[in-house]
Amino acid sequence: MSAVLEIADLTRVHGKGEAAVTALRGVTLTVTAGEMVAVMGPSGSGKSTLLTCAGGLDTPTSGTVTVEGTDLGSLSRKQLAALRRRSVGYIFQELNLIPALTAAENVSLPRELDGDGHREARALALVALEEVGIAELADRFPDDMSGGQQQRVAIARAIVGDRRLVLADEPTGALDTDTGEQVLRLLRARCDAGAAGVLVTHEARHAAWADRVVFLRDGLMVDETGPAATADSLLHGIRR
């Protein structure tokens, strides 16, 4: 499988001098098409920093981030913004929905910014909202929705169109366990359909949907679960 995201020896130092904080120290991670990787680690271990660097929203102090073969460091601001809109879906720890726009408008915005016609963008937005199970809320404003519904709008925005890389930072925060599981099934299905996914989560139950779980501590990758077991070994394993 081809690598969609390649992070090589990524170091990120926030701030300067006395106040400098090293959020990541030499992290290397490759995520291939169809693969979902979960990132776990204590608060402050660098998970969000890893994700913002992977999505081109933050710039590494050293090391490289490559998305679909393009080194993000080699792009101009404008090129980077275009690649972000076209290839990267991002679900933030804070939802960042625009209150003045309806659900459908929030979801179609990145497509319109990328030059899609209004109608075409809306059609894609409706498909994405349908996929997250809230098609009927398309014309509501974020303030008139529950936390869980807003969360789904944010997810629809991240998967609208055909994003090859989906980055999710605690996407299940405001959801009950069953709805949270629906969200994970959705991300899983996206990856099974060929996207590469990175999921940051504190919840082991959610991380378990990933093919691989990597553990960060103090900006270092300290461990990871191996490759997926085969279907046949599963029932055997359970019979220990």
């Binding site: 378990a208 990933a210 997926a228 359970i238």
Partner: peptide, 17 residues
């Protein structure tokens, strides 16, 4: 950490099932 990785692995197996 060793235990966490092992338990996560079991959790992944249950989740696949």
């Amino acid at each position: 950490q060793a235990q966490r990785t092992a338990t996560l692995r079991a959790l992944q197996d249950y989740t696949r099932l």
